[in-house]
Design a protein around this nucleic acid. Structure first.
Lengths: 147, 147
DNA sequence: ATAAAACATGTATCCTGATTGCATGTTTCT
DNA sequence: AGAAACATGCAATCAGGATACATGTTTTAT
């Protein structure tokens, strides 16, 4: 019973950016802070930008930030977007699926799962444990732009 | 978001046996009925026997059947047994896990998921859609023992 | 007793799909 | 013009589940 690392990374990005919703961060900074693959993270972030969770600014001194305030970003909606396969047990390949009483039960269980996530916003999650900055890898601040 | 095929197979076995709780079935018969790997199924069933979900009778004309009436077999308990990894997003490898507000939210969501499954017995599932026998592959009846 | 049926278990191989890395393009700022 | 940073596609890799194969053990029927 697992979500993909894709979803994992997406949530980490939102948590990171949610600490300072206004600041523009580069993808490299986030990858370094967590010590994870920048290439993979870039794809996840790209997807989140297209989906409207993040706003990106291209070009030099560009970066990404939350597209909306943390209180308006729903965790359930995020998971629904990043996790595309909700066919828990591959009913698609089971021959009794058309008349299987389990499918409705599993659907209901999944609904129960998502209902909990739908009940929380990024702001709620951040409020629970606001202080994780000290656990991140140290990141050199972006060089100041010469005036 | 998926459960393993291991869990999938375990549930199919219970559904199959639940139709006729008293009858002794061979593992080969069930594998053939669903058109799935007998080897893999054997391991799953073995596990279920040890866990007390099934009763097996070895030797010639042996087989397996439910260890208890369908009403006393809980779906949540089954999934809890066959699905051993409930670390949804690999928090074990995330550096901010000790101070991450997401872990408690995910735990709560998982509890919501399992709560639904805990609310159903095999009998409940069978009652929902009792007629799937015609979807199974035809299985040659075990040769009658010569008297 | 013996053979056959059926359960039991370990090892090794295969294979899917997520993950990652590499190469290259596009945009925007200085 | 050039550097920084986002954007995208493709190929290589890797982990873990799934499967096959080989063999052992138990029980029953004759």
């Amino acid at each position: 019973m697992r979500l993909t690392r894709y979803t994992d990374y997406a949530m980490r990005v939102l948590l990171y950016l949610g600490r300072e919703p206004e600041r523009l961060c580069s993808i490299g900074e986030i990858a370094q802070a967590y010590g994870i693959s920048q290439n993979h993270l870039m794809k996840v972030i790209n997807d989140l930008v297209h989906a409207g969770f993040l706003a990106s600014l291209r070009g030099r001194n560009g970066g990404i930030r939350l597209a909306r305030p943390p209180a308006e970003i729903n965790i359930g909606a995020l998971v629904r977007h990043t996790e595309d396969d909700f066919d828990l047990v591959g009913c698609g390949s089971c021959i009794i699926a058309p008349a299987c009483g389990l499918t409705s039960v599993l659907d209901e269980a999944m609904a129960g799962f998502m209902a909990v996530l739908d009940g929380y916003s990024l702001a709620d999650v951040l409020a629970r444990r606001p202080d994780f900055s000290h656990l991140l890898n140290p990141v050199a601040p972006r060089e100041a732009v010469r005036s």
